[in-house]
């Protein structure tokens, strides 16, 4: 989780990602942020996130993003 929070912090330093539960609906993460985040996640966790996973539920909070990463790692 800490690694993920670090990545998120780098994208939006002013947000406390450990508390936010509505990153997409509140438009904290825009589509550009998502692309940057996906690219970081792919590099850091050595995974390949397909566009199919780009739905608000998977990016609404740090926990949801971590769950997604774990799910893709398990699939591989």
């Amino acid at each position: 989780m800490e690694k993920l929070l670090e990545i998120l912090k780098e994208i939006k330093p002013e947000i406390d990602f450990s508390k936010e539960e509505n990153l997409i609906e509140r438009e904290i993460l825009t589509s550009f942020d998502i692309i940057r985040l996906v690219s970081e996640l792919n590099n850091e966790y050595d995974i390949e996130i397909s566009p199919l996973y780009i739905v608000p539920e998977n990016f609404k909070s740090a926990q949801a993003i971590l769950d997604l990463v774990t799910k893709i790692q398990d699939e591989d």
């Binding site: 692309i35 566009p51 780009i54």
Partner: peptide
């Protein structure tokens, strides 16, 4: 456009390779 053009192109293998 976001779902069917922007994300698939941004996240395509070629783009991700370039990104890396």
């Amino acid at each position: 456009f976001r779902e069917y053009i922007f994300y698939p192109v941004s996240m395509s293998k070629g783009m991700m390779k370039f990104n890396k």
